[in-house]
């Protein structure tokens, strides 16, 4: 599987998959998708990238250790819940702000932040495991 073709195509594939994963993540509230599935797609992308260029390079591309991303995700999700306490509503109550730009509108909400947290938790954990398994000698 370590062919020239695979190694050439893989980075492009990874890029497309990552963009797609973000798309899936953000559409999740109204269409099929969401943080969990988005995170899985992104993790698959990282696994492919790791196979092509080596886990070390894949980890460098991630900028942080995958588990740090996972921890960030869990913290972000928890923070989205804590935020609602500031408005004197129970933990994890959804808070919504809707920005209008002419015709369109963009909704920013704590469930969305929560979903992004899920995305990072899944991405971080699964890619950490996958990259560690791909790695035969070096770091975990």
């Amino acid at each position: 599987m370590n062919t020239l073709i695979f190694r050439t195509i893989a980075p492009l594939l990874t890029a497309v998959m990552l963009v797609f994963s973000v798309f899936v993540l953000l559409r999740g509230h109204n269409e099929p998708g969401g943080g969990f599935i988005g995170g899985l797609i992104a993790a698959s992308a990282m696994a492919i990238y790791g196979m092509a260029v080596g886990p070390g390079a894949a980890r460098t591309a991630l900028k942080a250790h995958p588990l740090v991303l996972a921890g960030f995700g869990v913290s972000l999700a928890a923070l989205a819940g804590v935020l609602s306490l500031a408005f004197d509503v129970p933990f994890l109550t959804g808070l919504w702000t809707i920005f209008r730009f002419g015709e369109g509108e963009v909704a920013i909400s704590t469930p969305m932040v929560f979903d992004i947290g899920v995305y990072f938790a899944v991405l971080g954990t699964v890619s950490a495991v996958a990259l560690a398994l791909e790695d035969e000698e070096g770091e975990v």
Binding site: G28, H29, N30, E31, P32, G33, G34, G35, F36, G81, L92, G94, W96, A107, S109, P111, M112, F114, D115, V118
Partner: peptide
């Protein structure tokens, strides 16, 4: 505020 019931359950109702 979500049409995808599965996702709404995951991130909101059963967050």
């Amino acid at each position: 505020h979500g049409h995808n019931v599965v996702n709404v359950i995951l991130v909101d109702f059963r967050g």
